[in-house]
């Protein structure tokens, strides 16, 4: 890594500026997707998906699920006592940004609890892959880079740790797809490419900003008002 970095640092500041702008954008786009993939495979996601699978398998075998346009996923249960088929809200809301969303889109035809459980199992398997590749893989790679390349990677490691803690605590995706973050990243990348003390300062400052951003998001989402809003949003 040092070779190409030394080469870039010998270039003129104009080239470094262009490179930093491109790097800022690339880090934002790729980083967001990696964070999302790590969140898909987070322990909380795995536990919730497996719990849902267990709940579905425990339902009466003739239970049906069907999508109603504008209503959501309904459950149809036969009540022997009244000899009626009751259709009611299932209370299940698939993760709209999750890796297994496609498994939930089976059309309007009623499907059995076993069918839905099989789809949830596939969702779990995809998340398990994400756990090994992105969640666990992310930590392992960052630790390795911090040991073998530069202690500056510890900043990224701390950020990932705080990010995943906040994600697990709130149950929300925490992403950074905003233009100002691209600008911040580009500025930090430019200072990093310039080298010297500024490079270290830029990395620490950027890390501190994103860690504080995550902590702020965590605090805001955990407030009582936001929790009430989340309940209202989920009810829609």
């Amino acid at each position: 890594m040092t070779d190409w970095l030394d080469t870039v640092r010998t270039l003129g500041w104009q080239w470094q500026l262009v490179g930093a702008a491109a790097a800022g954008l690339a880090i934002l786009l790729v980083g967001n997707r990696l964070l999302k993939a790590a969140t898909w495979g987070s322990p909380r996601a795995l536990v919730e998906t497996s719990q849902l699978y267990v709940r579905l398998r425990a339902l009466p075998p003739a239970t049906l699920f069907r999508w109603r346009v504008g209503v959501g996923l309904q459950v149809v249960v036969y009540d022997e006592a009244t000899d009626e088929e009751k259709e009611m809200p299932s209370g299940l809301r698939p993760d709209r940004a999750g890796p297994g969303l496609a498994f939930w889109m089976w059309g309007e035809r009623p499907r059995s609890a076993a069918f839905v459980a099989a789809r949830v199992r596939r969702d779990f398997l995809v998340r398990l892959v994400c756990f090994f590749w992105f969640f666990l893989g992310g930590f392992v790679v960052l630790v390795r880079l911090a040991i073998t390349e530069s202690p500056l990677w510890l900043v990224a490691l701390v950020f990932l740790l705080v990010h995943q803690l906040a994600t697990s605590a709130t149950g929300r995706y925490i992403l950074f797809e905003q233009p100002r973050h691209a600008v911040l990243l580009a500025v930090a990348a430019f200072l990093f490419l310039r080298g010297g003390v500024l490079a270290t300062v830029a990395v620490y400052a950027l890390g501190a900003y994103f860690v504080l951003y995550v902590l702020g998001f965590w605090y805001m989402v955990s407030s009582g008002r936001m929790e009430r809003l989340a309940v209202l949003r989920d009810a829609l």
Partner: peptide, 9 residues
């Protein structure tokens, strides 16, 4: 095992 679900569908 899941015959009831298949029949219900």
């Amino acid at each position: 095992r899941d015959w009831q679900g298949e029949l219900a569908e």
